[in-house]
Simulated assay, not measured.
Amino acid sequence: MIGDLVVLDVGAVAHGGHCVARLDELVVFVRHTLPGERVRARITEERKGYLRADAVEILQASPDRVEPPCFYAGPGACGGCDFQHATPAAQRLLKADVVTEQLARLGGLPDYPVEVEELPGGPLGWRTRVQYAVAPDGRLGFHPTRSSRVLPIAECLIAAPGVRESGVTERRWAGVDAVEVVAPSIGDVSILTRRGRGRPRVVAGPATVREQAAGRTWKLPAEAFWQVHPAAADTLVAAVLDMLQPQHGERAFDLYGGAGLFAAPLAEAVGITGSVVLVEADPSGTAGAAKALADLPQVSVVTNRVERALTELGEADIVVLDPPRSGAGAAVIEEIVATGARAVAYVACDPAALARDVKTFRSFRWELAGLRAFDAFPMTHHVECVALFRP
C-alpha cells in the first residue's frame, strides 16, 4: 500500500495541515491539496483505520490554488509550510473551518462562527525566530513532514529579513544539532546553537534582545519565548484588553505569564489601587519579568507551576490564561473557576487544546462568550485564538 498512487476526491480541511478523503472504507489524510479537488496521491503511511498521502498531481484544481512561492514547498520537501498552494484569503478560511470543526467535535459547540483575521505585513517575511536543523554534512535546513531527515535549504521565504540576511545557511555547522536565528524588533540579530537537549548557546549577536510591544521595551534572553510574528504581540494584547475590560481597583491573574506581556497593560488598566499577579514556572522567565515590570508596584511575580500557585492565591476579578500548546487542562480550569473571576481571556495557539478546554469550562457552567482568531502564522496551518469565558 505505501507508495501506491491513488485517485482521491478531496473533502474538508482537517487540523494539522491536511484535508480528508476516502479510499474505499479508509479515511485518508492528504497534504498539498485543497477541499473540492481531485488529485492523484501517493500513500506515505498506513495506520490502523486510516492512511496518510501526498497529492503529487492535481487532476481538478480548486479556484483557490496558486503556485507555491517557495522552491522547497511540495510533497516530500520542507514540512514547515502547509498551505503555500492556497491564496492567503483561502488559508484564513481553511483555518476558520478547522477552529469551527474542533469547537464542534471536541468542545460540544456546533456551528460556532469563526473568522480568522489577517495581520499586517503579508504572508512572507514575517517569522522573526527561525530554528534550523543541521544535516550530517553541516548544512542547515528543515525536516520534511513526519520525517527526521534534514532537507538543506538556501533561503526560507517566511523568515524575516534579518533572519535571511544573517548568512547562517551559507556556511557549514559542525558539532551542533540546531541553529536558531532571532531577529528582534530592536537591535542586532542573535544566532544560537544547540547540542542535543542542552541549553542553547549564543554564538553571535547579543545574549539579551529587545522587543517593542504594548508601549514598552522588553529585554529578554535571546532564547526566551516571544511571538514570532512582528504584529502578534500588540494584536493579542489589544484583543485581551478589549475582552476583559479591566477596571480600576480590580485584581488580575496573568497565568503562564512569561516576560509579562499581558501583565504590564493589565497593571496600567487596574491602576495603583488594583493588583496583578503573574505566575510562571520558568525561573529565568520570572526573573526577566520582575526586572521588566519593576516600575509597576501593583505587579507581583510568582515562580511556580500554575496549578500549584492557584491553590494559594485566593480570589481574582479577571484572568489572562496563556497556556502551552497542550492547553490549560481540567485541574487549572477548576482552580480558575474557584477564584470567582468574572471573566477569563484565554490565548490559545492550538485549536484542539482550546476546544477541549472549552468543554471543561462549560462543564463548570461557564460560557464561551467571544472568540477572535488571528493568522499569526501565514502559510502554515497554525492559528492563534483569543477566547473570552464568563460564568
Rank of each mutant, 00 (worst) to 15 (best):
V347L: 05
V383S: 01
A178F: 10
P35F: 13
A316C: 10
L8E: 07
R42S: 12
R362T: 08
K359P: 07
R47S: 10
L368C: 09
H32S: 14
R92D: 15
T380G: 06
P324D: 12
V237N: 02
E268C: 15
A232C: 08
I186W: 03
L106P: 03
A204R: 12
A224L: 08
A345T: 02
A328L: 04
Q84G: 06
H143C: 14
T44C: 13
G196R: 08
I191P: 01
R210M: 15
A281C: 11
D82H: 06
V114W: 00
D4Y: 04
A135T: 10
A53K: 02
A222K: 00
A21H: 00
W226A: 11
E384P: 09
V168S: 07
R308F: 03
R146G: 09
F389R: 12
I2P: 07
G11L: 07
E312R: 08
V344F: 00
A289R: 00
V344G: 01
D24Y: 03
E155S: 09
V30D: 05
A259G: 14
P69F: 12
H229Q: 05
R199A: 15
D177M: 07
G314V: 11
L94P: 01
W226R: 04
T217Y: 12
F364P: 11
F364R: 13
T360V: 10
Q247H: 13
L371N: 00
P184Q: 14
P351E: 08
G80H: 01
D295G: 05
A55P: 13
P246A: 15
Y346R: 00
E315G: 15
F253N: 14
A338E: 08
V337Y: 09
A90Y: 02
F29C: 06
V344A: 04
E101V: 13
